[in-house]
Design a protein around this nucleic acid. Structure first.
Length: 267
DNA sequence: GCGACAG
DNA sequence: ATCTTGTCGC
């Protein structure tokens, strides 16, 4: 009986998760859909005419989750917000939870979205002035077996513009690591190559985000942003290989777990 | 058939 | 994701 229930649970999970991804995918927006102006890569120009202009992108969020080595089911979800100009962290928040959903490639969102969404909603409910205008997610967007990775899932759920940042290539639609590497090495000092799936659609881009970085990061559209704009924003935030919002979320997440051991908030 | 497979 | 020391370089 236990086996039956276990396998039923497993089956229903898989089937339902496919449907949930397909259903949410209908809400996906893959072009710029926000009122904020992306600051030019240099300093912002002040025309001094006092005229009204669009509000600029200022608060960029990053999310990550780290795990307890002693118990991989204990996770620390972390949300940080950085000021784009200075890349200073102006907000961080943490939530330690016990996860009951396993990691399955292609279904990462079902494991991580609840905890991340909770952190975002807490900030939104309090009408926090630093609520992010854009969110970077440690995981892929449309670079995904069904074109709906963690960054898309979280973006649609939170109704936020999101960018997916992968540190490893998810092998989808014939994409493979060595081919990408060869293409990057083909050019003299090629910094990025577009990722085309078997279907010919652009799924994302492999990008050497800093001069010294041999290994690229893999970015893809999450929600409500174009790939071109996503690349601009990511480049603006890369002091190191991993964009600062993700990097800070990662660093602080591990630190929090080190300093606040064994205190799950949800059971 | 075997291996690969975001975090 | 996590386990891990030193080491090379700016």
């Amino acid at each position: 009986m236990g086996n039956f229930l276990a396998s039923f649970k497993f089956c229903s999970l898989s089937v339902l998760n496919f449907r949930i991804q397909d259903e949410l995918k209908r809400k996906l927006i893959t072009e710029d859909d926000f009122p904020w102006e992306i600051p030019s890569s240099s300093s912002s120009v002040d025309f001094g005419d006092g005229g009204e202009r669009k509000e600029g992108l200022k608060y960029v969020g990053g999310v990550d989750i780290s795990f307890l080595k002693e118990d991989p089911s204990i996770a620390c979800g972390t949300l940080v917000v950085l000021e784009l100009d200075s890349l200073n962290v102006v907000y961080d928040d943490f939530s330690v939870d016990m996860l009951h959903i396993p990691y399955v490639p292609g279904f990462l969102a079902f494991r991580e979205v609840p905890i991340l969404l909770k952190l975002l909603e807490k900030m939104k409910k309090n009408a926090h002035p630093f609520y992010p205008q854009l969110l970077m997610v440690d995981g892929n967007g449309i670079l995904h077996p069904r074109g709906f990775g963690l960054a898309c899932h979280l973006g649609v759920m939170a109704d936020l513009p999101t960018i997916g940042i992968g540190k490893n290539l998810h092998h989808v639609e014939g994409l493979n690591h060595s081919e990408v590497r060869d293409q990057l090495d083909a050019g003299d000092d090629k910094q990025s190559v577009y990722l085309y799936g078997n279907s010919g659609h652009t799924l994302g881009v492999a990008m050497r985000s800093t001069l010294g970085a041999l290994k690229p990061i893999f970015l893809s559209i999450g929600h409500r942003i174009s790939l071109t704009t996503a690349m601009k924003v990511v480049k603006m935030t890369c002091n190191y290989r991993v964009p600062e919002p993700i990097r800070q979320a990662d660093l602080r997440s591990r630190e929090y777990l080190r300093k606040h051991p064994f205190v799950p908030q949800c059971l």
